[in-house]
Design a protein around this nucleic acid. Structure first.
Ligand code: FES
Ligand code: FES
Lengths: 166, 166
DNA sequence: TTAATAACCTACTAAATTAGTTGGTTATAT
DNA sequence: ATATAACCAACTAATTTAGTAGGTTATTAA
């Protein structure tokens, strides 16, 4: 079992998508800006998410990604599975053979733990996360931060236009 | 969060200790033979387990390691914590600062997951594991395997002795 | 039709971690 | 005295992570 930045990024990005895709596709550069995740890294993660048909893509300007199912039908466990190998805590991937073909002393413990984690993460849909107060608060802050950055970009653009016009 | 061979080895070795330390200290080479874990690697793990006072050591011939507390007072979570950083699933180690000093969108989810895993692994003592039927079965098989290897070593020794005596 | 956008794709890389190995020293029971 | 077994430090190969670099292809809008 491993749960690192990779899996956390994937869930964060999918949640961002769930929060912002009501008005059409969301581009990875938007997600990158809002969530502070490298664009190229996001591309790699979304290639995997697409392979698992968790998202679908729209190319060209105004394009981006959409959830390929309802928010209530996508679970955190599926997202982590899509980018990591699995949420499996055993060393034998359930095969009971990690001590030279035989069952190791702690096999059953890791099976139980795997079930525990899997049950927990399988019970949490994107819909459930979107509803949470803590998630909404963070999302609002991120959105207003982005609006401020956009405004300052607009000002920069005005300056450039003004300069070009002499 | 990471749960790899390292943490699994540590728990397996501690359980082996719990199963065999009733008649005095258990040497790492015994654990190595029974559990198929490299001796030098075990030494590194036990250095950490000793620092966390989960085991105490006896040097010299007949020496080895003992649990420094009752089996019912040592929990799987403590063992994993001792060799890994922690069973924490957050990227911020609870500090709520993983997105450039601010809370990321999924912080609370990973906190909940960490609690889930910690509660589970904190509820399982070595005593509980020792009592389990599946653990006893594997332990019995390992013990009889070792007895067979010892016997064949004895035969080898007999051959060597015989050869030396002419 | 052309320019901009944004997905898609491949290959490379620095840093960290894992799972060891090697080659010792120190303490102690017999 | 010797064998045992803990203790210790330094090195290593392989793997994984979290990226970067440098493209190509599809689509929209000016
Ligand atoms: S974890 Fe399954 S056999 Fe060891
Ligand atoms: S995991 Fe805690 S702030 Fe991101």
């Amino acid at each position: 079992m491993r749960l690192t930045t990779k899996g956390r990024y994937a869930v964060t990005a999918m949640l961002d998508l769930a929060l912002h895709s009501d008005k059409g596709p969301v581009s990875l550069s938007d997600i990158s800006a809002r969530q502070g995740i490298s664009l190229s890294y996001l591309e790699q993660l979304f290639a995997k998410l697409r392979k698992q048909s968790l998202v679908s893509s729209v190319r060209g300007p105004g394009g981006g990604y959409l959830l390929s199912r309802e928010r209530c039908d996508i679970f955190v466990a599926q997202i982590v599975d899509a980018v990591n190998e699995s949420v499996d805590a055993t060393g034998c991937r359930g095969r009971s053979d990690c001590q030279g073909g035989t069952t190791c002393l702690t096999h059953h413990l890791w099976c139980d733990l795997s079930d525990q984690i899997h049950d927990f993460l399988s019970g949490i849909s994107l819909e459930k996360l979107v509803q949470r107060k803590d998630v909404r608060l963070v999302a609002e802050r991120q959105d207003s931060d982005i609006r401020q950055i956009d405004q300052s970009h607009d000002k920069d653009q005005d300056k450039i236009s003004a300069a070009l016009l002499g």
